[in-house]
Design a protein around this nucleic acid. Structure first.
Length: 427
RNA sequence: GGGGGGAUACCAGAGCGGUCAAAUGGGACAGACUGUAAAUCUGUUGGCGAUGCCUUCGGAGGUUCGAAUCCUCCUCCCCCCA
């Protein structure tokens, strides 16, 4: 009943590094393993989703996944591969973020206590809050040398530019987490992104020295886009799991917009589809690339899981209208409720009715009244390069906007380029 | 402590008294082509009431008809010698 977890990660492209003996252990018995999440924001991003998927597959392979939310470590800040010292988060922020993240994790893992390998969430603040500084230095600090700690790639960069004692200590805290979980919950393996390798091995080392137990580690690659830039951002914006921060429509669009190469890579990483199923999808895709099957399946699966089937359907409906054969006529036929649904999550501005009644030049409309563009120069440039549409019709610089442009006597749909919409509501 | 080099638009980096709103490359955005893909090609990348005006070249002053460019002071970075 145990599946080969390592094998699974391998073909999915989710394995970067693994400690010797890990595979044997995982095949021999059902093991508890954990991944840590820092509560630096009130929501996880799709970047964090990669390590969430490690836990998901871990559980599916018959092991017991633990998500650690770093209530304590979040107050310190991980220096790994960062360029500079980070700001502290306030106590309340950490606690608030932690609660939010906890709820998000519950979407992915099975917490049903009737199952032997049900998921659990732990918070390292619970065991750190009662440890005194002196006690920590005696119990933990004594076991790892500065030389060992400095040798980590993750801190090397910062040794040149400066690193506070606080952040330097981070790996001890994370190492102690692992030790504590190993001792109290018999957790034998820690997983994470490849940037965490240094911190994780501090943990296995600490365990070995303090208790003589064997502990294991495994990391997944950090995702980058095929052009090498950071994954998970759209126009410089993070893609969040929280629908208030990234609307389901935008979320869906993000995945749908993947290039072929990325879609193939990501469908393995972010879905739980079986290997054979993915290979079939890939084959279909190659036969009919214009149908974008990989992108659609990928976007569908993730959107449904992170948000809901309803959100997905709505995103589809919106996408079809906005990118399909939408015309001024078809848009005019929509009722108000549909419009509101479709444009949920699309930037909007509200203007007063007299502006339209009195007619207004397109540039003033787009800059002064609605902030579609930050400056008139840019608005004119965009219009000149054929990038601006009003209600699906290309517009000219001398266009006057008046009440004939209102859809449903209330809405104007502005398009900047092919993909960016802006809804103007006239009240 | 002594000596030297530097800070320019999102980033890298030229310019070293007027012709500089500032070369070039990257990034970003847009257009064409397409499949809401990739590649490619093209355009844009300080603001405005726009053949002109205003604000920008680390900060503050000064010289000059005129300064990113010269001088003084300050802040921060890098290198070399002790």
């Amino acid at each position: 009943m145990l599946k080969n977890f390592i094998e699974e990660l391998k073909w999915r492209g989710l394995l970067h590094d693994v400690m010797p003996g890990t595979e044997e252990l995982l095949l021999k018995e059902s093991v508890s393993g954990y991944v840590g999440f820092d509560p630096t924001a009130k929501s996880l991003t799709i970047g964090n989703l990669v390590t969430v998927m490690l836990l998901v597959h871990f559980q599916k392979s018959g092991h017991k996944p633990i998500a650690l939310v770093g209530g304590a470590t979040g107050m310190i800040g991980d220096p790994s591969f960062k360029n500079e010292e980070r700001k502290f988060l306030s106590d309340e922020d950490v606690r608030f973020n932690m609660e939010c993240i906890k709820k998000q994790l519950e979407h992915f893992l099975d917490f049903d206590e009737n199952n032997a390998n049900n998921a659990e969430i732990v918070n390292n603040y619970d065991w750190f809050k009662d440890i005194s500084f002196l006690q920590f230095l005696r119990d933990v600090g004594k076991h790892l040398t500065i030389n060992y700690m400095c040798a980590k790639d993750s801190v090397k960069k910062r040794l040149e530019s400066g690193l506070s004692f606080t952040e330097f200590s981070y790996q001890l805290l994370q190492g102690y987490d692992f030790y504590h979980l190993n001792k109290t919950k018999n957790i034998k393996i820690q997983m994470g992104g490849s940037d965490q390798w240094g911190n994780i091995t501090s943990g296995t080392e600490l365990i070995r020295r303090k208790s003589g137990n064997e502990a294991y580690a495994l990391t997944c690659p950090l995702l980058t886009k095929s052009d090498g830039t950071k994954f998970g951002k759209s126009e410089g914006q993070n893609i969040w799991l929280d629908p208030d921060l990234t609307s389901p429509y935008k979320f869906y669009q993000f995945w749908l917009n993947s290039s072929d190469e990325e879609a193939l890579k990501n469908i393995k990483i972010f879905t739980t589809f079986e290997r054979e199923h993915i290979e079939n999808l890939e084959k279909e895709h190659l036969e009919n690339p214009h149908l974008r099957i990989l992108q659609k399946e990928l976007a569908k699966d993730i959107t449904c899981r992170v948000h809901s089937v309803d959100d997905y359907n709505q995103a589809i409906e919106a996408s079809e209208l906005l990118f399909g054969k939408g015309t001024f006529e078809s848009l005019s036929r929509l009722n108000e409720k549909t419009i509101i649904n479709i444009f949920e999550g699309v930037p909007q501005s509200i203007i007063t009715r007299d502006i339209i009644e009195n007619s207004i030049n397109i540039v003033d409309f787009l800059v002064d009244k609605t902030n579609v563009f930050p400056s008139k120069g840019e608005a004119r440039r965009m219009i000149k390069s054929n990038a601006v549409s009003i209600n699906k019709n290309r517009t000219e610089e001398d266009k006057i906007v008046n009440k004939d442009d209102l859809i449903n006597n209330k809405y104007i749909i502005v398009q900047k380029g092919k993909k960016n919409y802006h809804l103007v509501i006239c009240e």
